[in-house]
């Protein structure tokens, strides 16, 4: 069971709920469950079946490049964040 933190800008879809616990194998499945509970969530987070360009997922604080395919088997927290480049 992982805790999905709902981005502040998407709380309008969750009636202000900031995080929910989901049982999902990966981030894509977690988003599908979020969308079932809070319709519109997938449209805001994804382009097709991928995370929207410019978004990344952080699992237990670690930024992952695997997007919707990132595994959640031992995850405790999931955050959706802007991508970070560097100079």
């Amino acid at each position: 069971m992982a805790t999905i933190f709902i981005p502040a800008q998407l709380k309008e879809l969750s009636s202000g709920i900031g995080h929910v616990d989901v049982a999902a194998d990966n981030v894509g499945e977690a988003i599908r469950q979020l969308d079932a509970r809070f319709p519109g969530m997938k449209q805001r987070l994804c382009a097709g079946d991928e995370l929207k360009p410019g978004l990344q997922v952080a699992i237990d604080g670690k930024m992952s490049s695997r997007g919707v395919l990132a595994k959640l088997d031992v995850a405790r927290e999931v955050h959706f964040l802007p991508v970070i480049g560097g100079g």
């Binding site: 800008q9 805001r44 929207k52």
Partner: peptide
Amino acid sequence: DSMGEASEKPSNIEKHLHFE
């Protein structure tokens, strides 16, 4: 773009982010 939602009119502001 406000976390996946686009404004109705074109704008020079291309992105708005909010954290709390």
